[in-house]
Design a protein around this nucleic acid. Structure first.
Length: 428
RNA sequence: GGAGAGGUGGCCGAGUGGCCGAAGGCAGCGGUUUGCUAAACCGCCGUAGGGACAAAAUCUCUACCGAGGGUUCAAAUCCCUCCCUCUCCGCCA
């Protein structure tokens, strides 16, 4: 969310900078509602001042055993006027915050300007694309042939866009989760955390999923709980409504969670395989920093996610998302895209973003600067997160990139200890 | 699910209608004292929004005692609803 004062004073600038991303914002309402809020607030405060003074006068008269009826009657009227004005104020504030909570974040100056994914900029590329003497198979063929993926039974017990993994497939998924967590906790300094997988409305609002994207979320029928679409949600909200001490920053967390997404509006896309599911596993990285160090942190965090791909020897590229392709809450985003031989293209496997103070403002996460100054004012932290990595898509990349002509799949060496020594998945 | 007790500042804890943004203590910050440390003593010590000032310091107004309503001239205090925590009983991995 934007600072309301900033919003009022720089409305046109914000609107211009957002461009197409601000198309569905009710800009005209903001101006009007802000003005109303200002005048009514002043009015209410003046009335309250009058009421407070009047009530003190009543108290004084009564102590002096003097009649207070006139003053009481007058204050009764003031009280009624306050009640009226407060009613309007509440309506105005609710309307204003509803509009304001639907305004996306502003892109950082370094973000390329563009309309859609075609204008994203490739930052770097890593690894060697494997060559095959035959047409490389898609991962669902490989997985079903090996007997480790079972989409038919997944559809039977749940429906479309679910998966069942068995045997070495399930073991591979679990190996990846453990490997990623171990690496981030022991090599990169993240604290592991396990959180609830369903959260309340305030939490979803804090990170920006609500109010605008409710249709993307699974919601429980009889409770106001939502299934998390990413661990970013519960982990970032760990510190909602807190003031952190500056010398503890940056705080870095990593969490493995399943993620649940409705995937509304993606009918027909990636209907086969593990790419786009209603439920998938992800290891997430989350960081809280001071504003002056958040872009440095974004590079670090992205490198941490990259290191997983490098150690698995999976070829990938890093894309700087253009302004038109970035998510709602992000100020800057790098996508990591892994090479998928069967599709002959790079596909997203991680998304690393700096949200600057956008989420911190919504969730009220502040820090008090460290170092002496007693009057140092609390300020909003910057929050970041990135996938480190999407586990299912990593399985896809392994199956496809390391498939062998005989239908087996080589397991990257760093995973061998996590696979109980298994170096290759073969048909049972 | 049933019965009961609670939610007050960074923490502990007083406060049952007005002089309470809130005693006292701890922690923190600044200072005095001190060979050093400690102790003692003095002062400061919440968040947010508005106004005055060119700005800072400062002054001032408003709100906030879990959340939202209500009663009242006046609510931390009384009433209602909700959320959360704790204790006991039941059920349960």
């Amino acid at each position: 969310m934007h600072d309301l004062k900033q919003l009022r004073d720089n409305l046109d600038h914000i609107r211009t900078t957002l461009g197409r991303r601000g198309n569905d914002v009710q800009w005209s309402d903001i101006q009007q509602l802000s003005e109303q809020r200002r005048t009514i607030t002043t009015q209410v405060e003046q009335l309250r001042f009058e009421l407070n003074k009047g009530s003190e006068e009543v108290a004084r008269l009564r102590r002096a055993k003097e009649p207070a009826d006139t003053a009481m009657a007058a204050m009764k009227q003031v009280g009624d006027r306050i009640k009226d004005a407060e009613g309007t104020l509440r309506t105005v504030e609710e309307a204003l915050s509803d509009v304001a909570l639907r305004i996306p974040n502003l892109p950082h100056a370094s973000v390329p300007v563009g309309a859609d994914a075609s204008e994203n900029i490739e930052v770097r590329r890593w690894g060697t694309i494997p060559s095959f003497s035959y047409s490389p198979k898609p991962h669902w063929d490989i997985g079903e042939h090996l007997g480790i993926l079972d989409f038919d039974r997944a559809a039977k017990i749940a429906g479309a866009r679910f998966s069942v993994m068995t045997g070495a497939g399930a073991r591979l998924e679990r190996a990846l989760i453990n490997y990623m967590l171990d690496r981030h906790t022991t090599q990169h300094g993240y604290r592991e955390v396990i959180t609830p997988l369903m959260v309340n409305r305030s939490t979803m609002t804090g990170t920006g999923q609500l109010p605008k994207f409710e249709e993307d979320l699974f919601r429980l029928k009889d409770e106001d709980y939502f299934l998390i679409p990413t661990a970013e949600v519960p982990v970032t909200n760990l510190h909602r409504e807190e003031i952190l001490s500056g010398d503890r920053l940056p705080l870095r967390y990593t969490a493995y969670t399943p993620c649940f997404r409705r995937e509304a509006g993606s009918y027909g896309k990636d209907t086969r395989g593990l790419i786009r599911l209603h439920q998938f596993n992800k290891v997430e990285l989350v960081a809280f920093t001071t504003p002056d160090r958040s872009y440095e942190e974004l590079e670090r965090l992205t490198a941490h996610a990259e290191s997983i791909l490098q150690n698995l020897n999976l070829p990938y590229r890093v894309m700087a998302l253009c302004s038109g392709d970035m998510g709602f809450s992000a100020a800057k985003t790098y996508d990591l895209e892994v090479w998928l031989p069967s599709q002959q293209q790079y596909r997203e496997i991680s998304s690393c973003s700096n949200f600057e103070s956008f989420q911190a403002r919504r969730a009220s996460i502040k820090y008090r600067p460290a170092g002496g100054k007693k009057d140092a004012k609390a300020d909003f932290v910057h929050t970041l997160n990135g996938s480190g990595l999407a586990v299912g898509r990593t399985v896809v990349a392994i199956l496809e990139n390391f498939q062998q002509p005989d239908g087996s799949v080589e397991i990257p060496p760093v995973l061998h200890p996590y696979m109980g020594g298994v170096e290759r998945i073969e048909k049972e």
